[in-house]
Design a protein around this nucleic acid. Structure first.
Lengths: 175, 175
DNA sequence: TATTGTTATACTCTATAACTATA
DNA sequence: TATAGTTATAGAGTATAACAATA
């Protein structure tokens, strides 16, 4: 029973986002026995970018699970390798970390023998960051895994698509 | 005080990082003088998407601060409005929430008088979700604010750029 | 006084297990 | 047994304040 004849409008999945944005109410009843109307969301860049980011990071984390490295750790190792001897504050500046949070991450990376902190000679407040030998060896492996991960996504849009995507994202957030 | 100015400095220098991201054709040799080499990161789709997502959400949160609505809350209100009477499990399915986490969010939205949960008649385990009148009124305002937020980004890439971007992101994460 | 790194803390978001009340 | 919702909790990630050592 309760066959709710009210719900037979059967709206297809494409939602008119412009209409929703303009405040035009939808008459949609409750017939979502399969596909749920996301309303304006699929037309919002923020929603699409967030969904993509979640999907990509999920793959990244699974790809790196065998070496127990997370996206933030990979970015820190990469920046240290590309700027040997740089200070913690500079890593924070480059990656948008808070100093207090980088401390905790470096504690872990140092404990694992991947990074070393060296007291600055000229400015004894600062610590110069370096990869250890083990850190460099691991980073080679990480780069191989990341390349696989990257290819899994890029083959869906091609190298041209990747160039377009990076260009659009850069324009999107350019000051 | 020092912490506040630190925040400003970080934001300003983040634009340097964004400029690095924008440098597509550049071989991007190690430009010294305080700029930090991000290595392979700017060529990784996940890094670019993550950076864009952070920037867009920051603007979204600031835009919605006056009504105290966060991105997840907006998406839930939008889905309820577009599928009146749907169940909590369906919201979770549509948006990728865990059931336990949606409960907490709905407690808050219900406390604020924006959403109501109605015991299902046919299945008394489930709760049919509806916006209250106040919720509908607020959502109209939210849609106006979101449209402003969206325009701030879209004017940088144009409507064509937006179509390309949404298309590329959809292809990128298509099953 | 200002900056670098640090400790402590808190808040959001996300994830899992176990419970309840229904089915 | 299975499902919808709930409670409790734990883990990341991110944020700020305060401190010591140093500039």
């Amino acid at each position: 029973m309760a066959e709710e004849s009210m719900g037979l409008i059967r709206r297809r999945r494409q939602s008119n986002a412009a209409a929703n944005l303009a405040g035009k109410g939808a008459e949609a009843a409750a017939d979502h026995d399969g596909s749920i109307d996301l309303g304006v969301l699929p037309q919002l860049v923020g929603y699409a970018v967030r969904r993509a980011q979640l999907r990509i990071f999920q793959d990244f984390i699974e790809t790196m699970a065998e070496v127990d490295i997370r996206p933030g750790q990979f970015s820190v190792l990469t920046v240290i390798a590309a700027n040997r001897g740089l200070k913690q504050a500079e890593v924070c500046e480059a990656l948008g970390f808070k100093r207090a949070n980088l401390v905790v991450m470096l504690d872990e990376l140092e404990r694992r023998g991947l990074v070393k902190r060296v007291r600055g000679a000229s400015d004894r407040r600062s610590r110069a960051l370096h990869l250890t030998k083990a850190g460099e060896v691991l980073l080679l492996r990480l780069n191989g895994l990341v390349a696989q991960h990257e290819r899994r996504f890029i083959r869906r849009i091609g190298e041209d698509g990747k160039r377009q995507l990076l260009g659009l994202l850069a324009k999107l957030i350019a000051v």
